[in-house]
């Protein structure tokens, strides 16, 4: 049992960390564009903001399990195959990008507009304002957004079994639920709870430290 669970735990960690990493990098771009083009942004642009806003909403409203199936051709294109732990990174990342975009946008737009105005009044360029004001002030908020993303991804990764990605959720379903082996169910659940707690605690600690 322990061999199976240890392997599955590593698969979960791999999927969560990998997809968090990619989705944060890729979600950051739309978040930044949304912030800049928002009505109260540095470069307000109703069209770009509106279109991107709708795209993000559409992607967010897809249930993960459906998204995973729909994008199988895309997964194959990127990962070379559509089955396995590595391949699961693709749907996990794709599903997390709009979420990341939203939480980072929220953090960035939470920066007091007075600070932006002050920076502009000293002749700062937009790039300077992004770097030294937006990112600086929003950093703790971005960290708690990433924490939230990771916790969501733990939940999504549990469905990875559907495309042969393994992971703790898969073990819980196959061994615990379908084969009715209660210890598997209990142990995987406990580990998942510990993961979530751990990530949340580290996230909170970082947030406090950074504020």
């Amino acid at each position: 049992m322990w061999d199976i669970i240890t392997k599955a735990a590593w698969q979960t960690i791999y999927m969560v960390i990998g997809s968090t990493l990619f989705s944060v990098i890729l979600g950051f771009i739309p978040a930044m564009i949304l912030t800049l083009t928002a009505p109260d942004g540095l470069r307000p642009n109703r069209l770009i903001y509106g279109v991107l806003d709708v795209i993000v909403n559409i992607f967010r409203s897809f249930p993960f399990i459906i998204l995973m199936v729909i994008i199988i051709p895309f997964t194959r294109l990127i990962a070379g195959k559509s089955i396995g732990t590595k391949a699961a990174l693709v749907p996990l990342t794709v599903s997390a990008i709009p979420f990341v975009a939203r939480v980072i946008e929220t953090a960035l737009r939470g920066v007091d507009s007075g600070l932006i105005e002050a920076a502009r009044s000293f002749g700062a360029s937009d790039a300077q304002i992004i770097r030294r004001v937006y990112l600086k002030e929003a950093f703790p908020g971005i960290i708690s957004g990433i924490t939230l993303t990771m916790i969501n991804l733990i939940g999504y990764s549990a469905m990875g079994g559907a495309i042969g990605a393994g992971g703790l959720g898969d073990v819980a379903i196959r061994y615990g639920y379908q084969a009715y082996k209660i210890p598997y169910l209990v142990v995987t659940s406990i580990i998942l709870i510990i993961f979530v707690q751990l990530i949340q605690s580290i996230g909170n600690l970082l947030y406090k430290k950074l504020m």
């Binding site: 007091d112 007075g114 600070l115 105005e117 002050a118 502009r120 009044s121 000293f122 002749g123 700062a124 360029s125 004001v133 600086k136 002030e137 950093f139 703790p140 950074l210 504020m211």
Partner: peptide, 19 residues
């Protein structure tokens, strides 16, 4: 921007970076 650098500005809410 150069002109702005020659005008300092202060505000009611101070507008300092908290971090």
């Amino acid at each position: 921007h150069i002109m702005q650098s020659r005008m300092g500005m202060i505000f009611q809410n101070f507008n300092l970076l908290n971090r």
